[in-house]
């Protein structure tokens, strides 16, 4: 049994999610290499609020850490977490397979390969250098997804298992090409390698303002297609008799989810596990309604990745653990625990 949500409780849950997200962001502002007391964070936030003038003096240094280093990084982690989770939900819905995730069709590998290539050609400190990297990531990811679709079309007229198989093949190809490129040039290779395992330490305002709108708009777009995703679950032909252009919808949804995935990869490298586990966690709690799943896995994905990024920043500070490794380390036991609770017949 899952929680039966009517309109009122849906609103309540959304409110609870918003409050928890904001408190997690607030908490995350206090942790890091430099421990900043809660009171200082609160004061500095009040300081930047419009219409309120308390004239609280705070060390300039701390304010800089809070607003120029931590906040953009936290926002980046949040939108990447939300984006990957929603993309995961969408892929699972479109492929009607709960094992699908954003990296299944090789989008991430394609984007990662393109980012690696971009790192050789785009000098790191030119204007809009991140924009270039993001464009490369889009190009790489979409090139892979288009060729997957095209090949599957030629081989087997878009049979879904053929799409997945060609996706896996191309994904491996891109991964090995990436490593090949990395080995060719060892000096910069290492920094790219650590980026590919996932990291938010390059995230600043420049990066966030390019990525956040794309991912957030993408998520809102997907939420509007919640009903369509629900109906697609009963199978392509019956969905068609209910007035849904099955094939066009599948293409559109995959495209939007891929754009989100590409932006996430451009921002933070490959962060596994989030796009697979957060949707499942939400399924356990909220059932299989895709509108709810998209909304709530967006929130929970954001919170999860912000918290994991906190631990990444602090555990072996001043060094960092690759976040891709950390998500699995934290997430797997948690997820298995919830599976056990579910199988014991307890209502969640």
């Amino acid at each position: 049994m899952t929680i039966n949500i009517n309109f009122k409780s849906k609103f309540a849950i959304t409110l609870i999610m918003c409050i928890s997200l904001i408190s997690i962001i607030f908490f995350s502002l206090t942790v890091g290499i430099a421990e900043i007391p809660v009171s200082i964070v609160a004061r500095s936030i009040i300081n930047v609020m419009p219409f309120i003038h308390f004239d609280l003096t705070i060390s300039n240094n701390w304010e800089q850490i809070i607003f120029d280093i931590r906040l953009p990084r936290i926002i980046a982690a949040g939108i990447v977490g939300a984006g990957l989770s929603c993309a995961g939900v969408t892929y699972q819905g479109v492929f009607r397979n709960h094992l699908a995730d954003p990296y299944l069709l090789g989008i991430a590998s394609g984007a990662a390969l393109a980012v690696t290539i971009a790192n050789y050609f785009v000098p790191p400190n030119i204007l809009f250098s991140f924009l270039w990297i993001q464009l490369f990531a889009f190009f790489g990811g979409l090139l892979v997804i288009c060729s997957v679709y095209l090949m599957a079309f030629i081989i087997d007229n878009r049979n879904f298992s053929t799409i997945i198989l060609t996706g896996i093949a191309l994904s491996s190809l891109c991964t090995s090409l990436t490593f090949f490129l990395l080995m060719m040039q060892s000096t910069r290779g290492l920094s790219i390698l650590s980026f590919l395992f996932g990291s938010f330490n390059t995230a600043d305002w420049n990066v966030v303002i390019y990525t956040a709108p794309i991912i957030i708009l993408g998520i809102i777009f997907l939420i509007f297609f919640g009903r369509t995703l629900n109906i697609l679950q009963i199978g392509p032909e019956e969905a068609k008799t209910l007035g849904i252009k099955t094939h066009k919808m599948n293409m559109l949804l995959i495209f939007v989810a891929s754009i989100i995935t590409c932006s996430a990869v451009a921002l933070a490298g490959i962060i596994g596990f989030v796009g697979l586990i957060i949707p499942h966690l939400c399924r356990l709690f909220f059932g299989n309604d895709y509108t709810k799943l998209l909304m709530f896995s967006g929130f929970i994905g954001a919170m999860f990745l912000i918290l994991v990024d906190d631990s990444v920043r602090t555990i072996i500070a001043p060094r960092e653990i690759p976040i891709g490794a950390m998500t699995a380390l934290v997430g797997s036991p948690l997820f298995i625990y919830f599976l056990f609770i579910k199988s014991n017949g307890h209502d969640l």
């Binding site: 679950q233 009963i234 199978g235 019956e238 059932g287 299989n288």
Partner: peptide, 11 residues
């Protein structure tokens, strides 16, 4: 349909 697929957890 002759044999409809029914998703798990749907009310």
């Amino acid at each position: 349909h002759q044999s409809s697929f029914l998703p798990v957890g749907l009310l």
